[in-house]
Amino acid sequence: MKHRILGYMILLIGTASMVFARQPVAAAAATTPDPEQATLTLAFKALSAGDPQAVAAAAESVTNPAARLYFQAGAARLQGHPKAAIQFAAKAVALYYQDVEWLPRNELLCAELYSELGLTNAAVVTARHVQTLYNGTDISKKAGALRSKIEGGTDGSPEQ
């Protein structure tokens, strides 16, 4: 199945792969006074620091809907509400699938949250999609690792 969707994957997320490779958020924040980028930087930092209130506050100021949902999901997850979290992330995946920058992150987040919720099948299905769709990216590797952890013993490489 992978070969069928590789074309689309390259087309749709080529830009996104580049974005991840270059860590655009940090770079952009350093070079341009874009308030959205500054907010995103703030949100990422809060997310790394595990501060749900700060993540939620930052999310309020994010204008990109897919990005806002991503951080809302992150905040809910940090507050110990994985079910609420996955509803934000799933909404981003379902409705803002044309947003090539945020779709992979939200899809991976969904896979992780499915796993946390004990919905193992959904976690594996989603992780497999992420792994295949974004092959060659860090997101894909993380999805592979998640699959490996859930399924126990597989090498996590994309299906051939």
């Binding site: 996955i86 509803q87 799933a90 379902a94 919905l119 099948n121 959904a122 299905v125 999609h129």
Partner: peptide
């Protein structure tokens, strides 16, 4: 395909 919360999000909309 087994991704229920994404389905719910779309059906809700």
């Amino acid at each position: 395909m087994g991704r229920p919360w994404e389905a719910v999000a779309l059906f809700n909309v």
